[in-house]
Design a protein around this nucleic acid. Structure first.
Length: 135
RNA sequence: AACGGCAACUGUUCUAUCGUCGGUUGUGUAAGCAAUCGGAGGAAAGUCCGGGCAACAUAGAACCACCAUACUUCCUAACAGGAAGGUGUUUUUCAGAAAUGGGAACAACAGCAAGUGCCACAGAAAAUAACCGCUGCCUUUAAAAGCAGUAAGGGUGAAAAUGUGAGGUAAGAGCUCACGCUAAAAUGUAGUGAUACAUUUUAGGGGUAAACCUUAUGGGUUGAAAGACCAAAUAUACCGACAGUUAAGAGUAGGCUCGCUCGUUGUCGGGGGGUAGGUUGAUUGAGACUUUUGGCAACAAAUGUCCUAGAUAAAUGAUAGAACUUUUUCUUUAUGGUAAUGAGAAAUUGACAGAACCCGGCUUAUAGGUUGCCGUUUUUU
RNA sequence: GCCGUUGUAGCUCAGUGGUAGAGCACUUCCUUGGUAAGGAAGGGGUCACGAGUUCAACUCUCGUCAAUGGCU
């Protein structure tokens, strides 16, 4: 039985890791998301991946719109996180990543989900390539 | 009845599944897991005022500078907020012949009669007024020039030196008088007071303080990213113990050797400041609601009941279904036509907006619904 | 969260309450065999928006909107 949870341990809260991520991490854009990700050593974080979800004040003036967009993104991550976790367990590595929303238009859940799946495919591809190259 | 404006109140609900933050309970060495309870607003917004709280500064007081406020009384912890009133301005198909009164709205409503500045263009002149004009004297032939007096009349402009009448004069002028107007002061009456009314005296000074400024009153500065406490890893001031080295050195009565002391290197232990991080500040308070009493009201007092979010890279969400609501279309009520109303189906709509230490206000945004007031149009009596 | 600054022509900016300006850009003409440079003329403004004070507001006051800077 898979648990579609999203607890505190799965969120990126450490200031140091965030600085490390934006300094060393790799970046790609899958519209409307901008993704930074980075492999970390196994004892720094307690679970397979930590994620940072991020919507800019420049894109949405109103706090209501920002909160809504963040909640939708979090929901997408929560429901599809096992695809990411399976790959990471197979490769035996841990990552931190940051998702930024860079469109300035609101969208509903269905459209958000579709875009998220596109992004996820690209991310899985990037991770497996990078890890193979390391070996 | 419809439409519009303003004000006040309200401002979607339920079920299932998967999640999220906090409290409690159980289980577990722990991470966690399970159960259960609770989890955004009238503006949470803007950060425009006032306070609590905290740190820093300061003997106390005065003066200067800067900022804010400015009719009165009251309410309030306090306020640039609120209530009641006064005065003024505007408005009114409300009354009235009119004067005026009533209603409504608005007011940064102390002081240009303290000083300084400014008032474009036009105009003679924008504040020690004199172009045309009027009057007198004098010069030359009339007309014009010069000197003196004057401010009645003229046009300009946003604004032009208190209005009418009489006297007065060479001509005129508050120059004088009468009746007014406006302002200031004094006295009396009413009122807590602003002020109103009456009488007397004085004055006639254009506007502008949202120009500098004057007067009165208030204000120390900075804000929870304030402040307090605990404290990994790494480096380490300092202290102690042990070990090593003369490989740099100093002292130990002049030199050398040995020893000793200081030093130096390493290990271990202690230890201070303090980073990551954590705890606190921080959710029981000028608290909410009910009833009663006092007050025109804002509000106050008493009584009873209740505890009602607390995140921190930042919780309150997603999906599916149902109801309600908005708008549109279709079917039916409707087997003569029109179609109010009711019923059903499909699509569509549900505002403004998200706590960030906490309170009291103000300002701004707000679909739909309810209530009240005002306006317009139509119909009936 | 807290505290500031700015908004004027297509762009960059001036502007003591009294007719809205400069440079670059644009249009037309001159100059040249032609282009550039140069010269002459011209067009182009909701002074961010809404109220108020004033005879008169880009300017003073209040509110709103937008852009932007600082404080860990």
């Amino acid at each position: 039985m898979k648990h579609y949870t999203f607890s505190k341990n799965e969120r990126l809260c450490s200031k140091r890791l965030i600085e490390y991520l934006f300094e060393k991490g790799q970046r790609f854009v899958s519209f409307p998301f901008s993704v930074y990700w980075c492999v970390v050593s196994s004892d720094t974080i307690p679970c397979n991946a930590q994620v940072l979800i991020n919507v800019s004040k420049r894109k949405f003036k109103r706090a209501v719109d920002r909160n809504r967009t963040k909640r939708l993104m979090r929901e997408c991550y929560r429901l599809h996180k096992h695809e990411l976790y399976d790959l990471l367990e197979a490769k035996n590595c841990k990552i931190v990543l940051s998702l930024s929303y860079i469109q300035d238009k609101k969208r509903n859940y269905a459209s958000m989900d579709e875009k998220y799946l596109n992004m996820l495919d690209q991310l899985l591809c990037a991770i497996s390539n990078s890890v193979q190259n390391d070996k």
